[in-house]
């Protein structure tokens, strides 16, 4: 059964069909939520709530890119969460990142991620640098960068996802990339050599 058939079946109340759509998009939805919120728990909640809301409002889907539609629901939940955080700023009880102070109850060294130690280290350094720079962007710039450069959506889909004109998408993306570039310069020594930003072009 293709995606359109699954959507039609889900619109008629077939939960099984909708869950097959969830399986297709849950990875993308969760990663988008995590990159915007930079918090595992909040990203989980946003993703789950977005899928519940999508199922309840599936009748409002009028065609077009379903991926853009479902990612819009996720993005809206993330923006709601960011607004809530702005109103009621809280201090997380858990460490902000992997290098923060460990607690006896949750030692990081006990967890076992799949890749080897060196690869894990490089990947984590890269991810940490990217996430740090993403967090310094305004939310609407951050979303565009995540959708285009991390999720791989084209400009038109991004425009549908966040309901913003194409020209604004181009402008925000260009400025966001420039800011990311400036920010990542600070992590030059930490990044793998292939990713180091150097002046390659001379006069």
């Amino acid at each position: 059964m293709d995606e359109t058939s699954l959507i039609h079946a889900a619109q008629k109340g077939d939960l099984e069909a909708f869950n097959r759509i969830v399986v297709i998009y849950q990875g993308m939805a969760y990663n988008l939520a995590y990159r915007i919120l930079n918090n595992d728990t909040l990203a989980e909640d946003a993703t789950q709530n977005a899928f519940i809301s999508a199922y309840r409002n599936l009748s409002k889907y009028r065609g077009g890119s379903f991926r853009a539609w479902i990612l819009r629901v996720v993005t809206n939940y993330c923006y709601d969460e960011l607004r809530r955080q702005k109103r009621r700023p809280t201090i997380p009880l858990e460490p902000l990142d992997d290098d923060s102070e460990e607690t006896l109850e949750s030692p990081r060294w006990l967890t076992d991620d799949a890749p080897g130690p060196e690869e894990t280290l490089v990947t984590k350094e890269l991810e940490k640098a990217v996430q740090h720079c993403l967090d310094r962007l305004p939310a609407n710039f951050r979303t565009v960068v995540i959708l285009v450069d991390i999720q791989g959506l084209d400009y038109q889909e991004v425009s549908e996802t966040i309901r913003t004109p194409l020209g604004t998408i181009k402008s925000r993306l260009a400025r966001a990339r420039l800011r990311m570039q400036d920010c990542l310069q600070g992590f030059r020594e930490l990044l793998p050599s292939a990713f180091r930003l150097v002046n390659e072009v001379q006069d």
Partner: peptide, 9 residues
């Protein structure tokens, strides 16, 4: 290069 880094996330 910036885009490459982001895509490698």
């Amino acid at each position: 290069l910036t885009r490459k880094i982001l895509r490698s996330t």
